[in-house]
Design a protein around this nucleic acid. Sequence first.
DNA 1: GTCTTAAATGCGACTGAGTTGCATAAGTAT
DNA 2: ATACTTATGCAACTCAGTCGCATTTAAGAC
Lengths: 137, 137
Amino acid sequence: MRLSCISIFGYTYAMNIENLLKKKHIKVTTARVTLLKLLEAASKPVCYEEIKGNIAMDKATFYRNMITFEEAGILNAFESNSKMRYFELERTPHAHFVCTVCHGVECIESIDIQLPGYEIGTIVIHGRCRSCVEARA
Amino acid sequence: MRLSCISIFGYTYAMNIENLLKKKHIKVTTARVTLLKLLEAASKPVCYEEIKGNIAMDKATFYRNMITFEEAGILNAFESNSKMRYFELERTPHAHFVCTVCHGVECIESIDIQLPGYEIGTIVIHGRCRSCVEARA
DNA sequence: GTCTTAAATGCGACTGAGTTGCATAAGTAT
DNA sequence: ATACTTATGCAACTCAGTCGCATTTAAGAC
């Protein structure tokens, strides 16, 4: 299985998806490579609903691999207020904004939260996004 | 229906649950008064699972009233990363921390997030809480 | 207090994102 | 190539939360 070179958090330039998986001791399969390519192409977190039109695999395979990737530290996941789980390749820590009107998801880099004694995993902010506020939606 | 005086965000001292509901044009029922008393007594957000042992009503009634209260601006709700919905009486804006180990929920008053152009509703932070970090859990 | 009407409740059936069990297929090592 | 382990597809399942509907309860009129 040969792939064009990609760049995932740390594994830059010469590292491709196949090598990333091997480095993590995860078996290289067509489904996994497809998923990582899609996650890499997406500039924001995606959920199964959004991605299912672009993948042939069963949803069980999708979710099982998300768990595998999460345990390997390859991706982060969080839940929106509508019971859906969003996935994103691991990168520099940042928060996510989920719009309660249009249900869009955005990465928010501009905030820095410190909670002494706590270990922060994910930060999810809900509200009306800029577009929906402007449109008075 | 007579109740001892309580104090919910703004409706202080002389205002009881019955008057709060009347002010919001919500019919005063036993279920609603029970729920508001429990939410008032709780110092942190609660979910149906936690509260169901203390209430006699059906879960449909519980959830329908949570929606009624939310729409009336009496309470706020958010979802944890385990598909459960937590409810809390509306008060000064603050974030919530949900521990991924012990699943405990805490109110976090010490952070202040500004996102120009956005309208922030709820902020949920996931991670390991102080106790679980200390216990290396 | 009783009557009337609109809304709330309880029950059971349903929903839908995500999970699980199992037989089969596909990687990986020998 | 062969054996062995792990991943996949399918269908059945889970479970927090929702919905439809018959019955009960609150609130205003008399």
